[in-house]
Design a protein around this nucleic acid. Structure first.
Lengths: 239, 239
DNA sequence: GCTGGTCGACTTGTATGCAAGGATTCCGAA
DNA sequence: TTCGGAATCCTTGCATACAAGTCGACCAGC
């Protein structure tokens, strides 16, 4: 492998903008690539990752690849056993339930805080809702998923605790894989939009209790599909 | 630097048990060492870390050190600017406030859940409380700090959501540095014990509202000292 | 004295080579 | 046929060499 600092042919379009200042490191690019692949279940749970093979596929050496893997281990997305192998972590419903607890309570608290803000601006949320409906019509699940994230992030922004959303990101990856698996079901998608609408309505009305109930239902939806998905993809789960 | 796979002289006793199976990797050891040093403010905020120097001090090569640093970057404890340098992140009170929000709400929710458990066992908590009082008498702040962690972890255990505590760990590091700085103040320590006692009492009595109030006060205590600590250690803070 | 430019010492980023250990496979013997 | 053992392949872990960039100091010219 010759030195290819800026390969003209770069496998995989890079959606992320990248920090402007330091030209994005190879390590970072690899990390984004792998994390995205794992979240979208393009790299399915249980898939084994060979460092040498991956390095060759991504046209990088093992060093930056290993640093990316170290970060993925830190977030619990992959596990590496020293002289045995590296694999994408299986989905543990128990862990997902823990993540659900965290998300439900934080989002509930953020919602309550947001309701107290007299200057809260709902228009952005409405726009995202409309956007989501469009994505459903054209069956663009990935865009729908991204908009879903944006909507919840916005609620945290309004609450004044955007950091809480950021903090949840690594943990949420586990939840996201399950949600991504359950997305092909049309009923699920419609239900999600309905709940989103209800949440935004409650926020506009300042209805704390009602909104919390919707958030609670929203957060538990993914987990409800858990057993069915486990039956459908038995190899993706453990315990 | 000769190959020293298992150095006989290992700087710094390692409290963590370590996964039994794979003999702890050098990278892991380095990570624990650095993370602990940063949390205890032995490596103060703003300290610059030279990879070559650090590697020499720790008797390892740059490779495992860099992997440890990559993980520390992932948790936001250090920042590295490509051709400039690596430094321990300064304390941002804004970030600490975000962490406070997360901790207060999660702990509050866990407490409420724990109160519902009829079989909740308080004896362990009482034991930790007694332990903490002993540590105060002998002025062992680090042990006091560790016991503090153990107590809160136990509450999450009782609630049935130990994972929520685990999930908070990386974020809590930021909060911990502030708490560690405010620990030398005797009033602070006594206040902490008092609040702990009140929380445990409330848990025993099943007093959800009372307990939540104490937890709220407890979580905000560290932040209250923020401005004073910022005045005392101006170089440790930013923004 | 001040300013501009160049050189050098330092930083991190990447590639590669080798070492150590586990797992599988294949062959031989019972 | 079955069981045992050894060798080989494949895995990750670590160390080192080199590349690229940034910052600062020093010196020359104005």
């Amino acid at each position: 492998m010759k030195n290819e600092r800026t390969p003209t042919v770069n496998a995989g379009a890079l959606a992320s903008v990248g920090r402007s200042r330091p030209r994005q490191r190879t390590s970072d690019r690899v990390y984004e690539e792998l994390a995205s692949a794992i979240r979208n279940v393009r790299l399915p749970p249980g898939a084994s990752l060979s460092e040498t093979d991956l390095a060759e596929q991504l046209h990088v050496s093992r060093t930056p690849l290993r640093e990316a893997i170290a970060r993925l281990v830190e977030t619990g997305l992959v596990s590496v056993v020293p002289q045995v192998g590296t694999r994408v972590e299986l989905i543990r419903l128990h862990d997902v339930e823990q993540a659900r607890f965290v998300r439900e309570n934080l989002e509930s608290a953020a919602f309550a805080t947001a309701c107290e803000k007299p200057e809260r601006d709902i228009s952005g949320l409405r726009a995202i809702l409309a956007e989501q409906r469009r994505y459903v019509e054209v069956h663009d699940l990935d865009a729908f998923f991204a908009a879903d994230e944006a909507l919840h992030a916005r609620i945290f922004n309004i609450s004044g605790y955007p950091g809480a959303w950021q903090i949840m990101q690594p943990m949420k990856m586990h939840l996201d894989r399950l949600r991504r698996l359950s997305l092909p079901d049309p009923d699920t998608v419609l239900g999600l939009i309905e709940e989103h609408t209800a949440i935004v309505d409650a926020l506009e009305a300042g209805d704390v209790l009602g909104g919390r109930a919707h958030i609670r239902r929203h957060a538990r939806r993914a987990l409800d599909n858990g057993p069915a998905l486990q039956a459908q993809y038995p190899g993706y789960f453990t315990e």
